[in-house]
């Protein structure tokens, strides 16, 4: 497949609205570009997770979605469940917050790494395994071949999240949604995971949406940042601009909460 040139738009979200009983997300615009990491920040409950689940079409049945989500020209809203299944995992992949919850404890790493590969890419068992070993190598899980036969609980938290990333990369998707990928991890391994995301984004021309409530994480890897508050995007800027000159009062408040900031000290983690 021909990759879009670096920086060209891959996933475009226009005027996204989500209602579950009551309106929860309003008029969100986002543009994910190949090889770039788009950060999405905001306090907990501001609608970040809902937005990323809307992209995969995984909102609860009772949700109504308005606006447009287009993947390289294809409108995703309004696709049938069957059509969406060919997008999920294949063209848009997701990494969840807590790998000890998002990996099935009773299924081997190998099977979890290969079942969607075999479905999407129609690979045989051996080919899928070879691919899985390659991926585990890429995300720096030690002893990749023997790791396939092991279970998630036999790995450390950081390694588990690497496995989850390998799972997401397995079908060579165009878009990666990472929802708080470091929040559940030890501080000591967070940087490694972020670094890995940065690397794979660049080397594969992957458009990444990095969701986090932690602006510290943003400042480490995001190219562009959007800030959400109560279901709306209130500020949008490049990383440098945002950290140098935040425009919106809410963004300043968030920045003030960062440890070591010159502004008033506030508890970290909103």
């Amino acid at each position: 497949m021909s990759r879009p040139a670096g920086g060209s738009p891959v996933l475009t979200i226009r005027d996204l609205g989500i209602t579950i009983g009551r309106p929860l997300v309003h008029g969100v615009d986002l543009e994910l570009r190949a090889g770039r990491i788009q950060g999405l920040a905001g306090e907990s409950g501001s609608g970040k997770t809902l937005t990323s689940m809307a992209v995969l079409g995984l909102l609860p049945r009772t949700a109504t979605t308005t606006g447009s989500i287009s993947l390289a020209g294809t409108e995703l809203l309004g696709l049938t469940e069957r059509q969406l299944r060919d997008v999920r995992g294949r063209r848009i992949a997701m990494v969840f917050q807590d790998p000890s919850a998002s990996l099935h404890p009773q299924i081997t790493v190998g099977q979890q790494l290969t079942d969607h590969v075999r479905r999407h890419l129609r690979l045989g068992r051996a080919q899928a395994r070879a691919r899985a070993v390659e991926l585990l190598e890429r995300v720096q899980v030690p002893a990749p071949a023997s790791a396939l036969g092991r279970y998630p609980h036999q790995f450390s938290g950081g390694q588990r999240q690497r496995i989850a990333i390998a799972m997401a990369l397995a079908c060579d998707p165009e878009v990666l949604l990472a929802d708080e990928p470091t929040t559940a991890l030890d501080v000591t391994v967070q940087a490694g995971i972020l670094h890995l995301l940065r690397e794979v984004a660049t080397e594969r021309g992957l458009a990444v949406l990095l969701v986090t409530h932690d602006l510290g994480v943003m400042s480490a890897v995001a190219d562009d940042v959007a800030v959400m508050q109560q279901g709306r995007v209130v500020e949008r800027a490049s990383r440098a601009e945002l950290f140098a000159a935040p425009q919106h009062p809410y963004t300043r408040q968030l920045l003030a909460a960062l440890p070591g900031s010159s502004l008033e000290e506030a508890p970290r983690g909103l």
């Binding site: 997770t49 809902l50 689940m53 909102l59 609860p60 949700a63």
Partner: peptide
């Protein structure tokens, strides 16, 4: 009986 939330 708790309602299932698909998100969160």
């Amino acid at each position: 009986r708790t309602e299932r939330t698909a998100v969160g």
